[in-house]
Simulated assay, not measured.
Amino acid sequence: MNLPKKVIHFAWKAAKDMLASKEALRQRHIVVEDGCALCGAPTENILHILWFCAHAKEVWSSSKFSLPFEVGPNWSFLDVMVKLQRSEELRPGLMERFVFVCWGIWKERNVIRTRGRCKLGRITLKNAIGLMDEYQMTNEGPARPATVGPELRKVGLGVLIRDSAGNVITAMSWPLVGPLGALEMEAKAVEIGMRFALDVGIQDAVFESDALEIVNAIQGIVAPCSSILLIVEGIHQLACLFRSCCFSHTKRQGNIPAHILAQFSSSLVSYVAWLETCPSHIEQACFQDISVAPIS
């Protein structure tokens, strides 16, 4: 995992049940009072602290983060990590995000217990995600210019997610270099957009693309050509993770904000995401564009 050593060490201790929860302390024959120190629940184990406690729930509910499974009341932190590992292929980076937010919850909980002050859940979440993004962007190594030849293309992908009223929920610019043709790049854009939507907790979605051939292939109107067959199959697998999901074609002029995001990514080394805010450089285009959830 591309995480700071202190966060990896935290995850290792949580998986080994070595964090100082009251249940763990009692197992070490240390006398402590019963019940969660923050919410009063009868049991305070690791997963309660990081997932079921009212304080943890406030943090998770303030995000659009969702797990591709239901966490059982008798699970351990290790059980969750094993499940996340199995989901990593379909939702890369999900485990890192989960661990970093858990670390933020644990850190803030210790502050509350020692100082008695509590931040809002959304502030704890924002701080944790911000630290993770900052760390990962500065620990990718020095940027190297991409070598783009006849078999390797560099493109930018833009993803914009809106609610039913057209308000921007989140956006992303993603630079992509790969041995893919134009059609494959368009299909890959849809796949990446779906993974991003899952990461931010979207359950019901309408995905729009201005690539008619891709939309028709996904909908089964036409058979996908061999170059995009595997990508389309992956899109169908991702679609099963949503509560409801459909695909729609939009004209290019109705997809302008996503294309601006794609152009912006040409100057990036890694992806950039804007959570619960509209990037300033697409505000005007979003105001003029009423389409929902465009993907470029």
Rank of each mutant, 00 (worst) to 15 (best):
S226V: 06
Y271D: 07
Q253P: 00
S265L: 09
S226H: 14
C225S: 14
I214S: 03
S280M: 03
R195D: 05
S265Y: 01
A285S: 15
I256W: 01
A217I: 12
E276G: 01
G254D: 05
A223P: 00
H236W: 13
L212G: 00
F264E: 07
A285T: 12
P257Y: 15
N216I: 02
C240D: 13
A223T: 13
E233C: 08
C225W: 02
T277K: 04
R243A: 15
L261D: 01
N255C: 11
T250L: 12
L198Y: 03
P257W: 14
L261G: 01
A197D: 04
E213P: 00
S267F: 08
S266D: 13
I231Q: 10
D210R: 10
I202H: 11
R195W: 00
Q284K: 08
I282G: 10
L238G: 04
C245A: 14
I260L: 13
K251L: 13
L261V: 04
C240W: 03
W274S: 05
S267E: 12
V200L: 09
R252A: 12
D199E: 12
L241M: 14
W274N: 01
F264M: 03
Q253C: 11
I256Q: 11
G220R: 09
S227K: 10
V222F: 09
C246P: 02
A273Q: 05
N255L: 13
D210M: 09
Y271K: 12
E233Y: 04
V272T: 14
I214K: 05
Q237L: 14
N255G: 12
Q237R: 07
Q284T: 09
V215A: 10
V222G: 00
A262I: 02
H259L: 10
R195I: 02
V206F: 08
L198W: 08
H249L: 07
E276D: 11
V272S: 01
Q237W: 01
L238A: 09
L198V: 00
G234D: 12
F264H: 14
Q203F: 13
V206P: 00
H249T: 04
I260Y: 12
F247C: 06
V200K: 06
E208N: 08
C246I: 01
P257N: 11
L212S: 06
I228H: 06
C246T: 10
S209L: 08
A273H: 06
A285W: 15
Q284N: 11
A217G: 11
D199I: 00
V215L: 08
I282H: 13
S266C: 10
E208D: 04
L275C: 05
I282Q: 12
F207H: 02
A262F: 11
A197V: 01
I235K: 04
I228W: 03
I228Q: 09
A205W: 05
S227R: 13
A273F: 08
S244D: 10
F247M: 06
S248W: 04
V222I: 15
H249F: 15
D210L: 10
R195F: 00
L229D: 13
G201H: 03
C240M: 13
A223E: 14
Y271N: 11
I221N: 11
Q284L: 15
V206L: 15
C286R: 09
Q263M: 08
V215K: 04
A262T: 00
S267R: 15
F242K: 08
Q203P: 01
V222M: 02
S270D: 11
F247N: 03
G234S: 14
T250E: 00
S265C: 07
C286K: 07
I231F: 02
